[in-house]
């Protein structure tokens, strides 16, 4: 399978990465090189094989459902590019 320029632009949109027309063109060639490389997986017989979900045979550890952390609003917002009173600030989203 390979991608055309329209698909590259759609994938860039889904990835939330702005891309110029010119870069979409060169990106198309790069992505097709990679997709061409992974094409060889088509020749593997995967009949009846389960897809891997965990590489190590283990049960997921569960913790007791209780509050054991928190009250760190200052820490959580400390690195935000814009914040006020421990809120993240974003451009207006509703009119």
């Amino acid at each position: 399978m390979s991608v055309d320029t329209a698909t590259v632009k759609r994938v860039a949109k889904l990835s939330r990465i702005a891309i110029s027309d010119e870069r979409a063109e060169s990106m198309k060639a790069e992505l097709n090189t990679i997709l061409g490389f992974v094409e060889q997986l088509q020749e593997v017989d995967i009949e009846g094989v389960e897809p891997m979900t965990s590489v190590v045979d283990m049960d997921m550890r569960k913790r007791v459902d209780e509050v054991n952390d928190g009250n760190k609003a200052n820490d959580v917002t400390a690195n935000a590019p814009a914040s006020q009173n421990n809120f993240f600030m974003v451009p207006k989203v509703v009119e």
Binding site: T7, V11, A12, S15, V38, L41, Q42, V44, E50, P51
Partner: peptide, 24 residues
């Protein structure tokens, strides 16, 4: 972008599920 593409609707099984089976 490759990751977004292989996980997008219609391609998930052909790419991602197959790759996870090969991993097994």
């Amino acid at each position: 972008m490759i990751g977004t593409y292989v996980l997008s609707a219609g391609f998930y099984d052909a790419y991602y599920t197959r790759a996870q089976k090969v991993r097994t």
